[in-house]
């Protein structure tokens, strides 16, 4: 009756540790080669004198590239702008995402259709989104300007007049505001999805209990919802911050850092210096200025993850 399974040979597929290593290896090696190595290459570059014409890393110049970059007038502006845009986007996105998740946690008819519409900005390629906003806030034909003129807020003899246009991308603060707006617009869906993941995980009973206890809307929001959402709000904030801080597409296609350097951001400036200007090493140095911020974000995230695990 019993079949002695002596014929079964132990093969590679049985050895879990080895199999695990082999299955992980391709992805790991790929990432090491094309993320890890470039990262250290970036550091090496920033300490060298490489240019597009002579891209070899031989001349070691120490921190000269950093010093040089810091002394250019554009650097403090770009750094300041990057921080302003990131912070403003962060705050707006988190507030809006919390509100939006409060709506989407419910069930309602045709929810999938609303979801498609709401996720649209995130699904759009960033460059095409930027072009869309470039046209939406066009200096001459912006429909927003038209609406403002119809409301008699813009144009001769009005509060924001006398010009007929606001020239969004042509002014420092309007430009930075526009860049912030575009970032909020394109990242809100992602942040909402993350916050919603936390929101749907809160058990219903907690809200019912709070209602029975007679807590009002704002009391529930600040005492129950937001504390419970906090871990995922941090995650959402981190994603938003990193994606905004590291992005150059929006600024490259809208204000182009102008007027002058007024709306310059760090990553775009690194691009201009490193690729357009041909000074690879200085571009890498500028790009590396972003690293401390990114590292802080990473440490924060790992801490959060660790804390979530130990709970």
């Amino acid at each position: 009756m019993a079949r002695a399974d002596t014929e079964v040979r132990v093969s590679l597929g049985d050895r879990e540790g080895l199999l695990g290593t082999l299955m992980l290896a391709p992805a790991f090696l790929y990432i090491a080669a094309l993320v890890g190595i470039p990262f250290f290459l970036a550091i090496a570059l920033s300490l060298s004198s490489a240019t597009i014409g002579d891209p070899h890393i031989h001349g070691f110049v120490g921190l000269a590239n950093f010093a040089h970059a810091m002394h250019e007038s554009a650097f403090p502006i770009a750094l300041r702008n990057s921080i302003i845009v990131t912070c403003a986007t962060l705050i707006l996105t988190l507030v809006l995402a919390t509100a939006e998740s409060e709506l989407l946690v419910r069930d309602f008819r045709g929810k999938w259709l609303w979801q498609i519409l709401l996720i649209l900005p995130w699904a759009m390629p960033v460059s095409l989104a930027a072009v869309d906003w470039l046209w939406l806030l066009d200096s001459e034909f912006s429909p927003l300007d038209w609406l403002l003129r119809q409301a008699h807020l813009l144009g001769p003899g009005t509060p924001w007049g006398p010009a007929n246009h606001l020239y969004y991308y042509g002014r420092e603060w309007l430009g930075l505001g526009a860049i912030t707006m575009i970032n909020v617009w394109r990242l809100l869906p992602l942040a909402t999805i993350i916050v919603l993941a936390g929101r749907t995980a809160i058990p219903r009973e907690i809200f019912e209990q709070a209602q029975v206890d007679g807590a009002g809307f704002f009391r529930v929001l600040f005492r129950i919802t937001i504390p419970a959402l906090l871990p995922l709000l941090v995650v959402a904030g981190m994603f938003t911050a990193l994606l905004v801080f590291g992005d150059m597409t929006v600024v490259a296609l809208t204000t182009r850092g102008g007027p002058g350097y007024a709306t310059q951001l760090l990553p775009y400036w690194a691009y201009l210096k490193g690729i357009e200007g041909g000074a690879l090493s200085e571009g890498a140095a500028v790009a590396l200025f972003m690293f401390p911020v990114l590292l802080a974000g990473a440490v924060l995230a790992l801490r959060m993850a660790y804390r979530a695990d130990s709970n």
Partner: peptide, 15 residues
């Protein structure tokens, strides 16, 4: 199992 050591065999070889 059945008098033979299966300690180092994978599950499928133990019947």
């Amino acid at each position: 199992i059945g008098g033979k050591s299966v300690t180092h065999l994978p599950p499928r070889a133990r019947n």
